[in-house]
Amino acid sequence: MFYSKHLNKALDNLKSNPQTSLISVSTFAAAFCILGLFMVLYVNLDSLLSTWSRQVQIIVYLKDDLKNPQRKTLEALFAKNPQISSVEYVSRQAAWENFKNTFSAETEFLQSLDFNPLPASYNLRFKPGPNRVENIRLFAETLGKKSEVESLEYGEKWISRFEKFMIFLRVFLLAVGGLLSLGLIFIISNTIKLSALARKNEIELMLMIGATHRYIKTPFLLEGALQGAAGAVLALLAAKGVHGYMSFQFSDSIAKIARDADFLFIGPSGILILFGVSVAVGWLGSYISINKVLNMENGS
């Protein structure tokens, strides 16, 4: 009852200042659309990273003069690790055959080699799960110390670079979101201030009559929150439009880059966060400005 009465008042306020309301809703929409598109980028890069990290395996290259008991020691170590899903042994001969098949076009070069330069190896695949890449890294470090092992390969450099990039992107998103929110708080507080100043006499009268601060503030707070909500809805629609256009127009390029992974939109939790932040920014902007206006009044 309390809020429905104030909601009507807030809607009346929005209707009575259509131009100012439109400007602030559009600003909200533009700012949160930018933030939404960054989130789309983040969601897709994150999905790409998980696809790639699922494909990470350790190739353990063995020393040439390795005897069977030494191999058994290593295999026992693999068996102890519950996160390993499969172990494949590739002998020197098999590796050489694979190499020759892969580079069959380079027959002249292959014929000039009169010995097998490739080492025997184990291909270790890991089960999916949390901290998968970190677990692989730790196990690789253990293996690297073994005397039986010549060298290891598990693409740790690009994985860790990509992970660092994702951390940077997350910080960047937070910074962009924070800056946009600050700007919006400033804009919305000015819009609400105009709306409150237009109703200065009414506010003064309410104070004289004995209205509580809460009663006076609530319609303005709802007005700010409504502007934020409307802006967020428009922003999400615009971001969805851009996402749809890109999916349609650049589907081939995206499929190539993302190795056939889907071009995703922000998930339900992301949508809720964007909407919530927008409403909170509208509310906060109004809160700041209505408090300022009330403090300007003598009797408040």
């Binding site: 006499n201 009414e202 003064e204 104070l207 004289m208 509580t212 601060h213 408040s300």
Partner: peptide
Amino acid sequence: KKEKLYLLRRHIGVVFQDYKLL
């Protein structure tokens, strides 16, 4: 306190020279 002044004002009616009508 500022936030509690409404309790006092609810006991008082005020009339002004300029009416202060909306």
